[in-house]
Design a protein around this nucleic acid. Structure first.
Lengths: 356, 356
DNA sequence: ATTAGCACTCCATTGCAATGAGTGCTAATA
DNA sequence: TATTAGCACTCATTGCAATGGAGTGCTAAT
């Protein structure tokens, strides 16, 4: 028994209907719904087969059928193929966002936040968006400035224009000349260097050259180390978590509580981001159905993600989280177009807007 | 008819019992619960009076009574007075936090985040905490550094050690001397100046002195303006939003959805923060019961807040959000001790850790 | 002033029957 | 041989009445 054209059509009809209603769908509905002109009895037989094949599930005897993860998966894969050929014309939602992106010259951060919100409102699903994560970690610039008698301000800039500041306490006031020397020492030795390559020997060397100011070097190196650490936990914005209450299958206390925690402790979402960034399927769009997602608390959800890239190596993830019966069609095409917008728009004015 | 000692005791007993069970409490329960040795009939009469006075409410005939906002208010006010006299000894929870505070020399930001989490776990309520808001806005330091041929890095430091960076695009490479001149120009004119006092005339003057580099001055001033704007929307961390699901009276879809949105769009919580910061009652602890809170979506909650102060003028708010029947006693004393810890601990190492 | 006692109210629970959507199977049909 | 009509059966849902219990308010007795 294999999945012939007719079975496929029936499966699709079941899924379509279930996406709309959220209720198990019965044979009679399909019999009328489709243009196959088959009686409900025939449909029943086919459904029985589809269930045996694992594409649909019967919640209990005498109920209709609902799609299984496997069923959804087939449906989505099929759709992705069709989409590929379609002209990728911007939907209404995307056009709105496009407008927003172009209007603003705000910081990337603000745009992303706004975008998450907009997506959430437009799709009625929860959304998340990770700020672009820098991979190349070359030091670009280090500077010490005197704030007052007892404090130095460190400014560290890493490739990708990630900037970090830190205050360093000093025992005694440094004169301008010493400060200049230290700045030159740091920059000539460290600029252009990937942070990973800074080793103990190098630090020892710097300290020696700094003489009595070795302590300051140590503090600066701590600050540099903090940059790496800081980069690891990516900033993630979420929006529309409340949307889960619109879908009864997610809205019971147990599940809702778990999901809300997941959105609040954005830490958990990080796994998702990492997963999308590594495992690239080519299109940049990924669909996780039910248990497929790397985040266990989302086992009753489906997640659609898009990976965007601003400048070389600055990658981030947009994710839409909804019930299994989400409107994959709309979500996928929205994300696809949005991703394209981000990929292209920001690449043009190279860097200009990318201070985080 | 006034509120005599006995009525007061009965009211207290009703509230205590309701705090525990969350169910309307009847006369028989009180009769047995208290050491007043009164029959249920007597209690009934008293309860009837209390209801007439507005301290308790009967959800429907033949149900027990639950406290009204007015009832809670009396209870809380009374407790606050008693607390005042009590030796303010650290509870178990606070001791844990104290330890945490001392162990870490992380950034304030990280400590606050952690603290919110810890409070949420320990109290089983939702928590929020606002990062210290700076009031004095004096410019302390401005610096332009050359990143590369086409980009300048602006570093702006405001009193309270709030640091902000920005990239400025330039048409052509600036030589060291010009850069130095610009830096001196900016610092001599602006340092020590409250941001609000920078006016158009001053800017015009600066631009004139900068000559062909007037454009850069404009960009820097934009960055300074952004600092103010940035300061306005305070950073607020939340934790334990999921705790609302532990209280049936908050966990129905409608209410939960609203509350979750409130926590996610931290913007709304800002009103609360502003309210606490202005209206100081002296103790630094404030209790909003039900409709008393400035945030409408929290009308079915009670909110207890504490205002802490790090350095002079750096004030923030800690808030605990739970059901009306929250354990006011525990919450208030926890917050009180915590506030004291923050007020004192951080004042010692003046500034050292306050880079945001 | 307090309390015992009683009638009354109202909610929540339970059991039961009716309903209806849906299935699986069988026998008839094209 | 594939399709369909028909029928018996299952099971969740709904409505309804009965029941019990928690609690009140009132009155009369202490």
């Amino acid at each position: 028994m294999d999945l012939d054209e007719r079975k496929r059509k029936i499966l699709q009809a079941i899924i379509r209907n279930y996406l709309e209603t959220g209720e198990p769908v019965g044979s009679r509905t399909i019999s009328k719904y489709t243009d196959l002109n088959l009686s409900s009895a025939t449909i029943r037989n086919e459904m029985s087969d589809l269930e045996e094949l694992g594409y649909i599930i019967q919640p209990h005897t005498s109920a209709g059928r609902i799609p299984s993860d496997k069923g959804y998966r087939l449906y989505v894969d099929q759709m992705m193929l069709e989409k590929e050929e379609q002209l990728n014309q911007a939907t209404q939602e995307v056009r709105e966002m496009q407008k927003m992106l172009l209007d603003r010259e705000d910081k990337v951060e603000a745009v992303l936040k706004q975008m998450a919100k907009m997506l959430a409102v437009n799709t009625n699903y929860a959304t998340m968006i990770s700020a672009p994560q820098v991979r190349g970690n070359k030091l670009k610039f280090i500077q010490l400035s005197r704030m007052d008698a007892r404090q130095l301000l460190t400014t560290i800039v890493v490739e990708g224009n990630v900037i970090k500041n830190d205050m360093i306490a000093v025992d005694q006031m440094l004169d301008d000349e010493t400060l200049l020397k230290l700045n030159i020492l740091l920059n000539t030795n460290l600029n252009g260097l990937p942070i990973e390559e800074i080793n103990l020997a190098m630090i020892a060397n710097l300290k020696q050259q700094a003489g009595i100011h070795a302590g300051i070097i140590a503090d600066v190196m701590d600050a540099v180390a903090a940059v790496i650490k800081d980069n690891e936990n990516v900033v993630i914005y979420t929006s529309g978590a409340n949307n889960i209450f619109k879908y009864p299958e997610l809205a019971d206390n147990q599940r809702a509580s778990e999901l809300i925690t997941t959105f609040e402790e954005k830490q958990l979402l990080n796994e998702l981001v990492q997963d999308t960034l590594t495992d690239e399927s080519g299109t940049g769009i990924q669909v996780y159905i039910g248990n497929e997602t790397p985040v266990k608390t989302m086992k009753d959800c489906s997640v659609v993600t898009a990976t965007y890239e601003l400048e070389e190596g600055m990658k981030g993830t947009i994710g839409i989280i909804g019930p299994r019966r989400m409107d994959y069609d709309k979500v996928i095409s929205t994300l696809k177009t949005l991703k394209n917008q981000l990929d292209t728009i920001y690449k043009k004015d190279d860097g200009e807007n990318s201070g985080i």
